Amino acid sequence: MTHQTPAPVSTVSVTVNGTRRTFVCEDRTLLVYAIRDNLDLKGTRVGCMNGDCGACTIKLDGQAVKSCLLLAASADGAEIVTLEGIAPPGQLSPLQKAMWEEDAFQCGFCVAGALFAAQELLDTHDDPDEEDIRKALIGNLCRCTGYEYMVEAVKSVARARRQGGTCDSSVD
């Protein structure tokens, strides 16, 4: 009989989508798995596991990050927004609504990455052009090739803002 030393564990406290949550996990647990398994938030997807596809994207302390590249313990004390927290329950943010109207998402695998990347662009550029939008989305893989529709959705949100519409597309 071999003796195995238990993996070290950490107690992690985070504010997720406005609610303080605490969980225990092994120190080696990736943040993407903690969000899905410990917090039961399935909008954060497990994809490539090396930061290329964007399916695991969340907002961590105000910045879009790939949660497959971070240990859960490193997020202790952080504020996290997941796909489920972009808008109030039962509502869509202006960007989500635009993506819906443009049929930008088919299978839904890339939703988090595309939304957080597009939102970050809209938060930093008042009037992004098509090249800006494409560059912002480049770190996200859409298996259904919905890129053209995503670009159109971001353009429509930017256009609504320019026209003085009530389009507050904040993800915070």
Rank of each mutant, 00 (worst) to 15 (best):
29 T>E: 05
163 Q>H: 06
14 V>Q: 05
62 G>V: 04
150 M>E: 12
117 A>C: 14
121 L>I: 01
122 L>A: 02
158 A>M: 13
10 S>T: 13
6 P>Q: 13
58 I>M: 01
131 E>Y: 11
164 G>V: 07
7 A>W: 12
9 V>T: 15
114 A>P: 00
98 A>K: 08
69 L>K: 03
170 S>Q: 08
119 Q>C: 05
58 I>P: 00
109 F>N: 08
114 A>Y: 12
113 G>L: 09
12 V>L: 10
10 S>N: 08
26 E>T: 13
150 M>Q: 15
131 E>P: 03
108 G>W: 03
133 I>F: 09
56 C>D: 01
40 D>I: 09
61 D>V: 04
47 G>Y: 02
108 G>E: 06
24 V>S: 14
69 L>V: 04
53 C>I: 14
144 C>N: 09
96 Q>D: 01
94 P>D: 10
101 E>H: 11
122 L>F: 02
141 L>C: 07
151 V>E: 13
130 E>V: 13
144 C>M: 05
144 C>Y: 02
113 G>K: 00
146 G>V: 12
82 T>Q: 14
154 V>W: 01
124 T>Y: 04
74 S>W: 04
48 C>W: 06
53 C>S: 10
144 C>R: 08
163 Q>S: 14
159 R>C: 07
52 D>N: 02
165 G>F: 15
6 P>N: 12
2 T>R: 10
30 L>N: 00
129 D>L: 11
19 T>S: 10
126 D>N: 15
85 G>I: 07
167 C>V: 13
141 L>F: 11
24 V>N: 10
107 C>K: 15
50 N>W: 15
119 Q>E: 11
168 D>R: 14
114 A>R: 05
121 L>N: 03
17 N>Q: 13
77 G>K: 13
58 I>W: 02
23 F>Y: 15
140 N>P: 04
21 R>L: 02
42 K>V: 02
107 C>V: 07
104 A>G: 14
121 L>A: 14
111 V>D: 05
93 S>I: 02
118 A>G: 07
127 D>V: 08
70 L>S: 11
31 L>V: 00
67 S>K: 09
79 E>A: 10
127 D>K: 10
36 R>Q: 05
133 I>M: 10
27 D>P: 02
66 K>H: 09
32 V>K: 03
141 L>M: 06
92 L>F: 14
152 E>I: 08
113 G>N: 04
8 P>G: 07
13 S>H: 03
